[in-house]
Write a protein that binds this DNA or RNA. Sequence first.
DNA 1: AGACAAATGATACAACATATCATTCTAATG
DNA 2: CATTAGAATGATATGTTGTATCATTTGTCT
Lengths: 154, 154
Amino acid sequence: MKNISKAISHADEYCKSRGERLTTKRKLILSELIKSDKALSAYELIDAYQEQNKSNIPAMSVYRILDFLEDVQLVHKLNLANKYVACAHICCNHEHEIPQFLICRECNHVKEISIGSTTIDEINQSVAEAGYILASPQLEMNCICNKCLSKKAA
Amino acid sequence: MKNISKAISHADEYCKSRGERLTTKRKLILSELIKSDKALSAYELIDAYQEQNKSNIPAMSVYRILDFLEDVQLVHKLNLANKYVACAHICCNHEHEIPQFLICRECNHVKEISIGSTTIDEINQSVAEAGYILASPQLEMNCICNKCLSKKAA
DNA sequence: AGACAAATGATACAACATATCATTCTAATG
DNA sequence: CATTAGAATGATATGTTGTATCATTTGTCT
């Protein structure tokens, strides 16, 4: 996720194709999320925005913008951490699969993976046996990344 | 989870065997959680406590008691919902496996299941390939229970 | 330009959680 | 049985996350 302006213009096209508008504010918020390269809380995002743009933005606006970005799947909300992360596939054209998130509890870095469909099937079966169905197969896992692990060992 | 007093006395023994004290307040909070038979937020628990005991309890105390009950694994915190649930195995003597939670997003009823170890192994492998390790293999899944599903269909 | 809808701002407040210091209770000891 | 040290709880304030509501601005279409 190096080239931010490319990612933003790609996201812009994507929104247009859906008849949605990626406004200036929305672009600025999305940029901060991409730049940070980790999961941020709404209020961390407000701070980053103010730092970058030397102007305030109300919490309400940030939440509304995050809602929008979630709706169009440019951003995912991580309920386990109450944080938000840019979709790892902003630059891909393909419809992406159901994401699974690995969240480092130390540095908040997030990896978006897709676990095998057979594994998902097994989970679905266990859930069905218990008398439930998955409302959202988005799994969020409380992890530690290798970097933080080696730091802790040191 | 019918017989609450039996569950409480079992929990009491369990705490004693670990050199911990299941005090009166802790018993009352645990009782409310067991009785409710679903996931409650800390503040819902405060309300239930006041309703039942005709006396107030500070939020701070409830959080401390929940922390204690979590430490001794009589209660689990569901981070996905910011709610707390009594361990399904209070009356079992066996050490329980890593729990997986199915949380009904409609009624907050929670089912604690154990998914197969092969499935867990597959997940662990995917996580390892991504350069992470699971900090807590407790999975929380956003579900709908069959009861609520049939209600919605009607 | 005028009008309508979409987006944003401002303000207040609700829900969830913790920090800190004071007080009370409990268990162990002399 | 009184003392005392530590554990548990209470009281108060505050931090963090998120929403409700109404006003204002911006963008689009004719």
